[in-house]
Amino acid sequence: MLPDFRLARPQSAAAAVALRAENPGSRFIAGGTDLLPNIRRGLASPEVLIDLGGVAELRELRADDDKLRIGAGVTLATIAADVRIQQRLPALAQAALAVAGPTHRAAATLCGNLCLDTRCQYYNQSESWRTGNQFCMKLVGDICRVAPKSARCYAAFSGDVAPALLVLGATVELLGPQGVRRLPLAEFYRDDGMDWLALGKDEMLYAVEVPLADGWLSTYDKIRIRGAVDFPPVGVAIALRREGEALAELRSACTGASSRPELIDGLEPLVGKPLDEAGLALLDKRLLKCTQPMETTVVPVPYRRRVMPVLARKLLRNLWQG
């Protein structure tokens, strides 16, 4: 049995946001595959859960001329199985399919994966384990166990879908009592394990818009110990556009390696010419420069730092060679 809370089941997004504003101790729940285990472990203790499962408008998935609009409540199984997404935005379909196992994906939603709680081996533990370790700053304690001298928390963002949407140039729609505001997905995240979302206290993630631009190729893959269920110690998304024999545009993003999904900058020197060894070497360098894997998982940092560029090179080469 979980700790006590009240459950509200609003029928519209506006009603859900109003309930959130009225109840400061509330949380939204969608698929529940991350939040409910966290509540059981004492990592979250909401007074009220606002179940978004009855809000039909959040499950809309439609393609306009030049963009795909995905409601926040669309399940990862639906995204992975959508033929338009498989054909036009393969990185997104692959990332959705890489999350957890088939039973999770049937319940888990886009908003849940994008707002996934940051993870750490000192945080995602039972109450008694954390008590024995005198807690950490993300909950109750006062220091970061992976970086005890640090003033901040280094828990890692481990969602698979965010890096794919970052390289696809997605925008998020946030709904609050004052209405809707839009943000580029990159601005939705902050590099802080305790405060990783630019989401107001009374706002919900309402929808995601992804441009359907011609000529882009994209892909996502993750390193994992087990073929299903595992969170990624590292995941990499790549998108590129080719013009003849030259790389015309290139984007890369990583997950599992920092407190936010990182869009890798400084890749401009690869553009305007064919992909070569020097370009791949620069990609290696930028990946390691832009990310900061810490001891947040049992998979050691040196391995994650080595495997990230290996994975990125493999994905980029495969895309480039078609």
Binding site: L7, G32, L36, P37, L49, D51, H104, A107
Partner: peptide, 9 residues
């Protein structure tokens, strides 16, 4: 997964 689903949902 019945362990990660609220009965009322």
């Amino acid at each position: 997964l019945a362990c990660s689903t609220l009965a009322h949902s």
